[in-house]
C-alpha cells in the first residue's frame, strides 16, 4: 500500500509537556484525511512537524517516501499548506501577496490568475488584503497553498472563524480538489460535523495520542442506535435479563442495549413483564458521531 504520509512514533514535547506522543499516521494517495481532535490535542503541532516547521523530539516522518528532516525542500516543493490563521501581508494587494510567493516558488504568472479564479477572489485581486473579511483572507490562504499545484495539501482548521456560507464554500472547494486535481488532502478540525462532510479517512487525536484511525464509514458504524428500557425497578430487571442470557447494561436506573433487533426488544419486554416488572418506556436513542467523538476523547482524558 502506498502511503503519501507516514509517521512512526512521532513525538514532540515542549519542556515537560508532551504535546504529541507516538503518533502513527498513515495517509494514502487521493484521500481527504480528516484530522480530528479537541483544541490543544496536538493537531497543529503535528501539522507543523509535517511541514518541517518544528523538529520532532523523536520518531520519523516520511512524506512521498522521503524523510522530512533530510529532504525537506524537495518534499515541501510538492506540499501546499495553510497553518492556523492565514498569513498574509496586509499592506499588499491579493495579487501582490501571491506574487511574493510565486517568485519564491518559481511558477508561471498565469497561475496567480488561475488560483484567484479557483477561490473566486478575482474581482478583488488588486485590493489591499488589509480590508478583506476573514473568509476572503482564508480563501487567499488557500489560493496561496494551491499556487504550485501541490500533490499534498495540508489545511489546518481552514473553516475556523468563518460564517456558515463561508464554511460551505470552503467545503465545496476542498471536496473538488482531489477529484479535479488528484490531490491528497489533510484537513484538521475540532468539529466532527466538518470532517464528516468532507473526509474519507479519519484520524482522531486526543491529548497528543492517536485514538482512532480508519475510514469514515468505520467510524459511522460506531454510531449504532441503542435501545433503553425505563422500568420501575431497573436493577432487578437488569439481573433478570442477565439471568436469561441477555447481555444488557445498567446505568442510572435505566437498562440499555446496543445493537438491538426488533425481535430482541420484543423478547426483552416479554421477559421483564413475566418477572413482574412494569415497563414504562422503550426508547431508541440514536448516537450521533458527535457523541462518539466526545465519548472517545472524554474517555481518553479521564485516564
Amino acid at each position: 500500500m502506498e502511503y503519501i504520509v507516514q509517521t512512526q512514533n512521532l513525538s514532540k514535547s515542549f519542556g515537560k509537556e508532551q504535546a504529541v506522543s507516538n503518533l502513527n499516521l498513515q495517509i494514502r494517495k487521493g484521500e481527504i484525511y480528516g484530522f480530528l481532535g479537541p483544541n490543544g490535542a496536538g493537531k497543529t503541532t503535528t501539522i507543523r512537524m509535517l511541514l518541517g516547521l518544528m523538529k520532532p523530539s523523536s520518531g520519523t516522518i516520511k512524506i512521498f517516501e522521503k524523510n522530512i528532516t533530510k529532504d525537506r525542500i524537495q518534499i515541501l516543493a510538492k506540499i501546499g499548506s495553510l497553518v492556523e490563521n492565514p498569513s498574509y501581508y496586509p499592506h499588499l494587494t491579493a495579487y501582490e501577496n501571491l506574487e511574493a510567493l510565486r517568485k519564491i516558488l518559481g511558477v508561471s504568472k498565469t497561475r496567480i490568475d488561475e488560483v484567484l479564479e479557483i477561490v473566486r477572489l478575482k474581482e478583488v485581486a488588486h485590493k489591499k488584503v488589509k480590508g478583506f473579511s476573514l473568509g476572503m483572507k482564508q480563501r487567499l490562504g488557500i489560493a496561496a497553498s494551491l499556487l504550485h499545484s501541490p500533490e499534498l495539501l495540508i489545511l489546518d482548521e481552514p473553516t475556523n472563524g468563518l460564517d456558515p456560507s463561508g464554511i460551505i464554500e470552503i467545503r465545496n472547494l476542498i471536496k473538488r480538489l482531489p477529484e479535479e486535481y488528484g490531490m491528497t488532502i489533510i484537513i484538521s478540525s475540532h468539529l466532527l460535523s466538518e470532517i464528516d462532510q468532507m473526509a474519507t479517512q479519519v484520524g482522531i487525536v486526543s491529548k497528543g495520542k492517536l485514538i482512532f484511525q480508519d475510514s469514515i464509514e468505520a467510524m459511522r458504524r460506531f454510531a449504532q442506535p441503542k435501545v433503553t428500557f425505563k422500568v420501575n425497578n431497573g436493577e432487578k430487571g437488569w439481573r433478570f435479563l442477565l439471568a436469561n442470557g441477555i447481555k444488557a447494561d445498567y446505568q442510572n436506573g435505566v437498562i440499555f442495549l446496543e445493537e438491538c433487533s426488533d425481535e430482541k426488544v420484543a423478547h426483552i419486554v416479554q421477559v421483564l413483564v413475566q418477572e413482574g416488572i412494569s415497563v414504562f418506556r422503550v426508547e431508541e436513542e440514536k448516537r450521533s458521531l458527535e457523541d462518539i467523538f466526545l465519548q472517545m476523547t472524554m474517555g481518553e482524558q479521564g485516564k
Partner: peptide, 18 residues
C-alpha cells in the same frame, strides 16, 4: 514586523526554501 504581523514566517518557511 512584516513577517511577524500575521505570523507569515510559518507560510514562508513552509515553502521549499532553506
Amino acid at each position: 514586523s512584516i513577517e511577524n504581523e500575521t505570523n507569515a514566517w510559518k507560510q514562508l518557511i513552509a515553502l521549499p526554501v532553506s
